[in-house]
């Protein structure tokens, strides 16, 4: 069950066997452990769903870093979730030039359809709605990204069709 107010993840915090292997590979890419922090945080987020205090402490221990450093880095970058997020993260570009092409109208439309504001998650944990800065697709505005895929030249109909596919 999706709990937006969870204070930590349930169950033991240990990397899966595949991720242990991945960790070994990552550590070989850099001359020292600390440099692997970003990729390891991504890996942890993918396995545990979000970067809870317990997960960050675990990453700190595995990379031999002070916990405060891990928290500081996780907080600096917007793509690390410090609280539970929905299964699908919709990011609508509202940078100049998208904003002149209807980026904010897309945000309003999704917000109305899902009954959530920007930064919020639907009660069933299905979708989180976010505004993004320029997503490198400005010529195809307005656009959004969900699960790493671009959806460009949006119209209300295309948005509704897309929302219907997000389970």
């Amino acid at each position: 069950m999706f709990n937006p107010n969870a204070t930590d993840i349930d169950g033991p915090i240990l990397f899966s066997p595949e991720n242990e292997k991945e960790l070994d590979t990552l550590l070989q890419r850099y001359p020292y452990k600390r440099a692997a922090l970003l990729p390891v945080l991504y890996m942890a987020q993918a396995q545990f769903g979000w970067l809870s205090p317990g997960v960050m402490a675990y990453v700190a221990q595995r990379l031999e870093l002070p916990e405060g450093k891990v928290l500081q880095v996780a907080s600096f970058y917007t793509m690390f979730d410090k609280k539970p997020a929905g299964r699908h993260k919709i990011e609508v570009c509202t940078s100049v030039p998208c904003c002149m092409m209807g980026g904010f109208a897309v945000v309003r439309h999704i917000s109305e359809q899902l009954g959530i504001g920007v930064g919020e998650t639907t009660a069933d944990g299905r979708v989180t709605l976010l505004e993004a800065e320029c997503l490198a697709g400005c010529g195809y505005a307005p656009l959004l990204q969900v699960n790493g895929e671009f959806h460009e030249n949006l119209t209300p109909e295309r948005i509704d069709a897309l929302l219907a596919t997000l389970r």
Partner: peptide
């Protein structure tokens, strides 16, 4: 890191 608004070539 292509992030300058208006830029979409490196991608």
């Amino acid at each position: 890191d292509e992030g300058e608004p208006g830029t979409f070539k490196d991608r």
